[in-house]
Amino acid sequence: MGKAIIAVNDLRKDFQVGEVTVHALRGINLKIESGEFVAIMGASGSGKSTMLNILGCLDKPTSGTYELDSVSVAELSKNERATLRNRKLGFVFQSYNLLPRTSALENVELPLLYNPKIKARERKEIALQALEAVKLTDRMHHKPNQLSGGQQQRVAIARSLVNDPVVILADEATGNLDTRTSYEIMSLFQELNEKGKTIVFVTHEYDIARLASRNVIFRDGHIIKEAQVTERLNVQVLLESIPANDGFD
């Protein structure tokens, strides 16, 4: 295990809903090291999404500290957080969030547009490498509506890789996909993890969570269980157990 990428200490988040204060997170301590593959689990309303928003620097904690790659996020302004997201984070969403009617390549290039240090030619090169990493080079000129759900999610993963982030945050990235495609996507994540990428993954599916290296379980704004996955499943084995045509014989 390497150095700490994410260090969260006594993190709290309150929301004011009308008269009522909702305590979404009530003192979270979490450390994620470089090269880990962490699955965050929990029921709806357990605070896992709030946690992911804060980890993703989209939201600020009410109190507590959060260090992302040795940068103290709580002290940053809105714009500084945007730049931090651009340089250090990769997002993968449940609903892909690709720009419609825009080619896969251009979708992957998108984060680099917000990095003024990267020139146009470099941009295309890096984007092509990222598409190669998700094995979609042959579809780079296809628009999202010409791609299957799994392919769209792979484009989204390529997009999250393109800025060489210190951590990839995935929010129910397999939530919209069938079992087989889910496993394919997970296989991609595992592959990236083996190459050294740190991945934080929110899911509510146990079998998906068992593909990660560590599980963190949330309930009512607390972490109630945190454990290394002892019998980590190999996604290739799972894939072989499912017939290629999904059993529709």
């Binding site: 993703g56 989209l58 809105k78 714009n79 945007a82 730049t83 997201r85 651009n86 340089r87 997002f91 969403f93 969030n97 720009l99 998108l110 984060p111 917000y114 990095n115 997009r159 800025n163």
Partner: peptide
């Protein structure tokens, strides 16, 4: 709106 959200999440600042 979603596109704007996405652009912000991948590093677009308000000014962008």
């Amino acid at each position: 709106t979603r596109e704007i959200g996405l652009r912000m999440s991948i590093g677009g600042r308000s000014i962008d």
